[in-house]
């Protein structure tokens, strides 16, 4: 049970942090190998690229859980509570619809990758496998979105679902680029 609970809390975060660490190590190895040992590493660029995509999708799922995605809530918050709640229902429904659409089209896309396999130039791995992250990522995001509603309902269905209500400064978090 403990393991499951930990995974529920930290699964995406852990995978994302691991992917980010691999990216950093791959990039620095490329520099060191070229400059210090005068050899060219063939695997670093592809490895880093795959990890980047996985890190983004895992991070995106983490962002659903942590209410970190960029969304504009000024309009919703200026509405009366009931109206605002219905509006956010609609918004989340649209979001869920997009996730379902993405799972569906990613499935079709992966089917094409499976039918016409291609292999990455330096690692030689079948492109199908890393790209399964599309279905996994949008699947996780959908699950996390439903989870926020379950928690919201369990906690008395007050305020707006999927919002941080503890401090006044809601949802609109820092996004650093």
């Amino acid at each position: 049970m403990g393991v499951l609970r930990w995974l529920e809390k930290h699964f995406e975060e852990a995978l994302c942090c691991i992917a980010l660490s691999i990216i950093a190590v791959a990039v620095i190895s490329q520099v060191l190998a070229r400059y210090v040992f005068e050899i060219a590493l063939h695997w670093t660029e592809e490895t880093a690229a795959i990890c980047m995509v996985w890190a983004v999708y895992m991070g995106a799922s983490l962002c659903v859980r942590e209410r970190f995605h960029i969304r504009i809530l000024v309009a919703v918050q200026s509405l009366p509570t009931r109206m605002g709640r219905y509006t956010i229902f609609m918004a989340d429904l649209a979001w869920a619809a997009f996730s379902i659409l993405m799972i569906r089209v990613s499935w079709d896309y992966l089917a094409v990758l499976w039918k016409f396999p291609s292999h990455s130039p330096s690692l030689g791995i079948n492109e199908f496998y890393p790209q399964t992250i599309l279905v996994i990522g949008y699947g996780l995001m959908l699950v996390r979105l439903i989870q926020t509603y379950v928690i919201w309902y369990r906690d008395g269905a007050e305020g707006l679902p999927g919002m941080l209500v503890e401090d006044g400064d809601v949802a609109d978090e820092e996004h650093l680029f």
Partner: peptide, 26 residues
């Protein structure tokens, strides 16, 4: 010579055979 090549195994092998030091770069 450190030679940029596309990330293609044949091209890499060719420059290696020529005695250069191929570097695959996007």
């Amino acid at each position: 010579l450190k030679i940029r090549t596309p990330n293609n195994a044949v091209m890499l092998a060719t420059f290696e055979a020529f005695g250069a030091n191929p570097v695959p770069l996007a």
